[in-house]
Design a protein around this nucleic acid. Structure first.
Lengths: 310, 310
DNA sequence: TGCATGCATCAAGAGAACTTATCCATGAAG
DNA sequence: CTTCATGGATAAGTTCTCTTGATGCATGCA
C-alpha cells in the first residue's frame, strides 16, 4: 500500500486551512486551488479517518467533534514544519562555508574577508583550511579556493590569481652578503625549502642550470606562509608568490631581487558546485571575490569561469 | 504558483525517513517506494531549501549542517501528525453518538443499552435526545432513532418497532370504577392528554364515534413516558405503546384493557447516513439493535432497510 | 581485480490531483 | 415570497507529479 494513502499529507494541509478558515472556498483561495479540490481532499482525509470531520452547513462548514480534536494538533505540526523550513532556508542563506588552502587563507582571505562581511553583513562566514583538496561530496562546504588547473568535473572554477613565484628575502640579509645582483648570488644564502620544485624551475628560467639544490639541507615548512615568515626573519631566501606579501614588501621586510617570475601553469581558483551556481550566497561571494581581483575599478566578469562537465 | 511547490510536504516525509535511516534505499523500503523516488524527492526539497541536505558519500548519505538542523524538527512535526491521526481514528472508532426521541430513549434504550456496551466495551456511547428530528448535516451524530415512515433522503432506515397504541391504566383505577368492560367505559375516567390524535383514532376503531374529547381539560405532558407515569400513578387512562412498559405490566401497575391497537402508519426506525453504512461502529450498533428486535433467536436481517435516494 | 552496495540519471508511464462545468440548497434581500 | 448570492457536491476530463525500471558510476570489501 502506498504511504500517501495511509497518511494523506496534502489532505492534512488542506484540512488545516479549511478548519482555520471555516470555509472550503476560502481555504482553496489561500492554497491556490479550487474549492472543488479542497472538497476532494477533505473527503480523502475523512475516508482515511473513517468519520466526517466537517458538518456541511448551508453557507459554512463546521468541525465535528473529531475534527475539533484533530485540527489544533495538525495546526501545531504544520507550524513546526513551517518554522523548520524557514530555519533551514535562513541557515542556507546566511551561512557561508568557505574552504581554502592555508596559505591563501592566511595571506589573502584573512586580510580581505572583512570587506565581504561588510558588504554582506547578514552572512555568517565560516572558514576552514586544509592542504588537501576537499571533496564537495564529502564535506559541507559552499565554496572553495584551490590551486590547480581549473579542470574539476562538476565544478565551476573562476581564476583568481596566478601562482607566480620568485625568490624573496629580507633586504638586510642581502646587504649582509654584499647585495644580490645576479641569480647566482642567491646560492650564497640559505635556501628555504630547496626541495621545492619551484626553485629548480626558477633557476632554470634565470639561466642557472647548475644549482645544486638537492645537496642542501631540507627545510620544508609545509606552507608558503611559514616560509615567508622565515624569510622575513632573515633566515634565508624563499621562493614565494609576491602578491601575498604586499605589507611586508611595503614595510621593507621582504623584497624581490629579480623581476623574473616563474609559473608552473597552476593558479588559484574559486570553485563551487556548478549545480549550485544560482545560490544567492555563492553568487554574492563569487561576485565579491572576482571584483577584488578584477583590474581596479572594473567589475569582474563571471564568464571567465571554467565549467568542467561531470 | 502551486502550494505543493512552496511547501513540499511529501518530500519532507521522505526526508524525515532518509535522515533517520541514513540511507535513501532504506527510506524507500520503509515508505514503500523506490530509491529513485527518494532521490527525486530529496532533490526537490534541497532545491526548495536552496542547499544540499545530504552529503552523498559512497555507501551512505550523511546530513549536512542544514540537514541536521532540519531533521529533528521535521521528525517532531510528523510525530505530532501521526499522533493526531491516530487519535482521530481512535475517536472515530470508539465513540458512538446516538440521538433518539426522549420516549424511546427512556423507555427502551435506557433499559437495553447496557447489553450493547457489554458487547462492545471499547465503544463509548453518548446519547442525546430531542423531540425534533435532527439533521445529520447539522449535528455530530452517528446514528439516530426516529419515528416516521422511513423515507428520509440520503439516509438508511431500519424498522425497529411499530408505534402501536392502546389505552393503558393502573388496574386499581379500573376496579374503582367497577371495571372496564367496553371501550365506552373509559370515558368514565380522566383521559390523559385527550388532545392526542391517537385517542380519536383508537375510539373510532373501537366503534365509539361520539367521544367528546375536545371538551375535556387538556393535560399534555409532552412525552409519552410522562403520560405513562401519570397512568401508573392512577391519575387516569393514557394511550400508550405497550412494548415500552413490559416491567410495569409485569408488576401489575399498568394494564391494557382491550386487545385493540391503533396504528397511524408510523414506526420507530434506526437511521444513519447511507454514505457511512460501512463504519464499524455504526455497523455494530445496527447489528445489535436489530438483533434485539428480531424474533428471538434469529439474527436480524439488515436487508429490511429502507434506503431513500438523495 | 571482481563483486556488492548505494546513489544519480533518464525516459516512459500510471495515477493522483486539480480544473471546468454544472447542480443544488440555503439564507438574505427586494 | 420570489430572486439572487453564497458555498458546497458531483462528474468528467486534463495536467503533471511522482513512480518505475533500466542503466551507470563510484566505492569498499573479499
Amino acid at each position: 500500500m502506498k504511504m500517501s494513502k495511509q497518511f494523506p499529507l496534502n489532505a492534512l494541509r488542506v484540512f488545516e486551512a479549511a478548519a482555520r478558515l471555516g470555509s472550503f472556498t476560502r481555504a482553496g483561495e489561500e492554497l491556490g486551488m479550487t474549492q472543488t479540490a479542497v472538497s476532494y481532499q477533505i473527503k480523502l482525509i475523512e475516508e482515511n479517518v473513517g468519520e466526517p470531520l466537517f458538518l456541511r452547513r448551508p453557507r459554512q462548514v463546521q468541525l465535528t467533534k473529531t475534527g475539533q480534536l484533530l485540527a489544533p494538533k495538525v495546526a501545531e505540526a504544520f507550524e513546526i514544519l513551517r518554522d523548520a523550513m524557514a530555519g533551514a532556508r535562513e541557515d542556507a542563506e546566511t551561512s557561508l562555508l568557505i574552504h581554502s588552502t592555508p596559505t591563501f587563507a592566511s595571506q589573502w582571505l584573512a586580510r580581505h574577508l572583512g570587506s565581504f562581511q561588510l558588504r554582506q553583513p547578514h552572512i555568517a562566514v565560516r572558514l576552514t583550511t586544509s592542504e588537501t583538496i576537499i571533496d564537495f561530496h564529502r564535506e559541507t562546504v559552499d565554496v572553495a579556493i584551490r590551486s590547480g588547473k581549473g579542470d574539476w568535473p562538476g565544478l565551476t572554477a573562476h581564476p583568481l590569481m596566478c601562482m607566480d613565484f620568485t625568490p624573496m628575502m629580507n633586504p638586510k640579509l642581502a646587504e649582509d652578503v654584499g647585495g644580490i645582483h645576479t641569480p647566482r648570488d642567491l646560492l650564497k644564502l640559505r635556501i628555504i625549502d630547496p626541495g621545492d620544485p619551484w626553485w629548480m624551475q626558477w633557476f632554470t628560467a634565470a639561466g642557472v642550470h647548475d644549482a645544486d639544490l638537492a645537496s642542501r639541507p631540507a627545510s620544508r615548512l609545509g606552507a608558503q606562509s611559514f616560509e615567508a615568515r622565515a624569510a622575513i626573519a632573515g633566515q634565508g631566501v624563499a621562493i614565494l608568490t609576491p602578491e601575498f606579501y604586499p605589507d611586508d614588501i611595503a614595510l621593507g621586510r621582504l623584497y624581490q631581487p629579480f623581476e623574473l617570475r616563474g609559473n608552473d601553469g597552476h593558479q588559484y581558483w574559486l570553485v563551487y558546485q556548478t549545480a549550485r551556481r544560482n545560490s544567492a550566497k555563492i553568487r554574492s561571494f563569487r561576485d565579491w571575490i572576482l571584483s577584488e581581483f578584477a583590474p581596479s575599478g572594473n567589475a569582474a566578469d563571471p564568464n571567465t569561469a571554467h565549467q568542467t562537465a561531470n
